[in-house]
Design a protein around this nucleic acid. Structure first.
Length: 111
DNA sequence: TTTATGGCTGTCA
DNA sequence: ATGACAGCCATAA
């Protein structure tokens, strides 16, 4: 069987993002051995099926904001999904990565 | 096969 | 802190 494709790796990482937490494209790209090329991550997510169960909405850009695609409405929808998971946006529509940023690894247990 | 695009990132001012 | 520029690579036509 052939090795996993780049998209598969990305999907695997995104699937592992816990609920109520968000990860940046660079974060996923790094975990996916992409070497930091976050772009492919975004494309992979965009290539997902509409009925996929992939938590693509938990993936955001390094600025902590929701990346804009072709449809500005997607931004609104993604934000809605995140809020539904408990993620909070500030006035700038930005997420506090320090708080909601997904920390892979056993992670330092927060108090 | 080549060409064009694309949900980004990091650095500089 | 924000704004602007260039670079990298895989997928789809």
């Amino acid at each position: 069987m052939p090795p996993p494709s780049t998209y598969d790796m990305i999907y695997a990482i995104v699937k592992h993002i816990p609920r109520g937490r968000v990860a940046t494209y660079g974060q996923i790209a790094n975990l996916a051995n992409l070497g930091g090329h976050a772009r492919q991550v975004g494309y992979a997510l965009n290539a997902l099926s509409a009925n996929t169960r992939m938590p693509w909405h938990r993936v955001i850009n390094a600025k902590g904001e929701i990346s804009i695609r072709k449809d500005p409405q997607c931004e609104h929808r993604q934000r809605r999904l995140l809020e539904q998971e408990g993620v909070v946006f500030d006035e700038r529509s930005r997420i506090t990565l320090a708080r909601f940023g997904w920390k892979p690894r056993r992670g330092p247990r927060r108090s």
